[in-house]
């Protein structure tokens, strides 16, 4: 499977999550390469690590405000840190599920993990250029970052 299709799988997973769980569509901006410095990390980040035929990391990072409104739309009243973590974890879980379904045995996908804090760093190989896919939802902006080599 080409990198193009792999990115497509992850983007579909995120958009589908917005369509079904949040029940309000998100829009994909033009993807670009993170050159020079690492891609921006927002308040909460859910990620999966991939090994096997390809190695790297894929993560969805979003600001707290966006995640809070998403929770509201999901009829959730508890905006605690735990719930916000759970939400990005759930998106990461969706990424993982779609990747398992589409990529087959050539990819080994880690259990989704969550980091909080915009100063967090996500480790990835310096040989790769992360591809950032902006995800716009309402007035908010999140990023899906695919960093595979």
């Amino acid at each position: 499977m080409s990198l193009q299709n792999e990115i497509g799988t992850f983007v579909s997973a995120v958009l589908n999550y917005f369509d079904t769980a949040v029940q309000q569509a998100a829009v994909v901006g033009t993807p670009y390469l993170a050159l020079g410095k690492p891609p921006e990390i927002f308040d909460y980040t859910g990620m999966i690590r991939i090994s096997g035929k390809k190695k790297g990391v894929v993560y969805f990072t979003a600001p707290k405000g966006m995640l809070s409104v998403m929770l509201m739309r999901m009829q959730e009243t508890d905006m605690s840190d735990t719930n916000l973590r759970d939400l990005v974890g759930e998106v990461a879980n969706t990424l993982s599920g779609n990747a398992r379904k589409d990529f087959g045995r050539n990819f080994i996908i880690s259990t989704p993990s969550v980091v909080a804090g915009s100063s967090s760093t996500i480790g990835y190989s310096p040989d790769t250029r992360p591809i950032v896919v902006p995800i716009d939802w309402r007035t908010y902006h999140a990023n899906l970052v695919v960093c595979l080599n």
């Binding site: 983007v11 958009l15 369509d19």
Partner: peptide
């Protein structure tokens, strides 16, 4: 694809 885009 379900969320938009196409798969070859």
């Amino acid at each position: 694809r379900a969320g938009g885009g196409a798969e070859s």
